[in-house]
Design a protein around this nucleic acid. Structure first.
Lengths: 187, 187
DNA sequence: GGAGTTCTAGAATCTACCATCTAATTGAAG
DNA sequence: CTTCAATTAGATGGTAGATTCTAGAACTCC
């Protein structure tokens, strides 16, 4: 093999995530990640060819974690569970939630690395597919309304709390459910 | 007097706003603003003591524009109009809307300039006051529910479209209204 | 134990940008 | 026409941070 690693890739991503939470995208410098993990800069570059690649991987790791539960709920035809997945996931993964929902992807990795293109595409299409499949099973449903209820409202509901560094309060779920039912009853 | 100005402060802010829309906060360098307006860097620093000050002023200009209509609607006791103010204002001011809703204040001006502290405080308190006044007039209303309906839902509704560079579609207003009525009927 | 490989280590380099500084314009007022 | 202040102009300095480079350490397998 070779020399065993003293620092894992995930340790580096964890450090980057923590720094991101404290100081925003600009604070995530290679030097900062180095200082936080204790790993020398050379080791960082041994794992990640560039800063953009590191941040892109961090973003992907966060997204994967979120997407899984969402797609599962949709596959079960459970729209309400899918809508509630956002606040629940935020409570379970506050740091990842803040990273994902408080920043634009381009603000993290200015240049999305080519080699990660496929992974990015996969994330996007698999989510779209889950929605398409649901719509195919429910011809009466309206896509606009679904997006509103599944994405827009939960996102908005959660955001203010993440910004404040808090976890979304439990009362939020009732509000989201009320919205969900009212809007879906419409069309 | 002296030599008349060739470039106004608003021209510089407009350029910064456009650059922000194209490339995000990091793209708004003094050199970029200089190139876009045609004004030399020296002129920029003649008007704005620092980059942070320029971006802080840009942010304030955007916020003021939004706040006005919102506060007016609240003063009229018209919650539905206040909720719809967000999508309407976004349609009327797409660039400012993107700047305001797609970035965190700290991502624009890393260090908020001291001299702008009072203006920032004013923005925050005046909005809070409008809400407090409404609550005082309507003892039955629930603050959480109001925030959800006035801030969270409209914000979420609009965001996805701003991200895509589109203007929020008109159908959104009906969805927001439906949500507004359903949630306020609850508490 | 020697060869090969993977990883740590951090100094050195290179780049981009903010901010400063000096000098040159420009037009108004007297 | 002279004086004066506001503004333009942009070269230059200083710094922060990404990236590269070279050397050495630690482990496995033969």
């Amino acid at each position: 093999m070779g020399r065993p690693a003293k620092f894992t890739q995930d340790q580096m991503l964890d450090a980057a995530l923590a720094i991101l939470g404290d100081g925003g995208p600009a604070a995530v410098t290679m030097a900062a990640v180095s200082a936080r993990t204790g790993a020398p800069i050379g080791s960082l570059y041994h794992r990640f060819a560039s800063r953009d690649l590191l941040l892109a991987r961090l973003w992907l790791r966060c997204v994967e974690s979120f997407r899984e539960g969402f797609i599962a709920a949709m596959a079960d035809d459970d729209v309400e569970a899918a809508a509630l997945h956002t606040p629940r996931w935020c409570r379970a993964n506050p740091a990842a939630a803040a990273a994902l929902l408080l920043h634009r992807r381009e603000d993290l990795a200015a240049q999305w690395p080519d080699q990660l293109g496929p992974e990015l595409a996969e994330v996007n299409t698999s989510t779209a597919d889950a929605l398409d499949a649901y719509l195919a099973r429910h011809p009466g449903a309206d896509r606009q309304h679904l997006m509103f209820v599944l994405a827009d409202v939960p996102y908005g509901a959660v955001r203010r709390h993440l910004l404040a560094g808090r976890t979304p309060p439990p009362e939020l779920d009732a509000l989201i459910l009320t919205t969900c039912r009212a809007v879906l009853a419409t069309g």
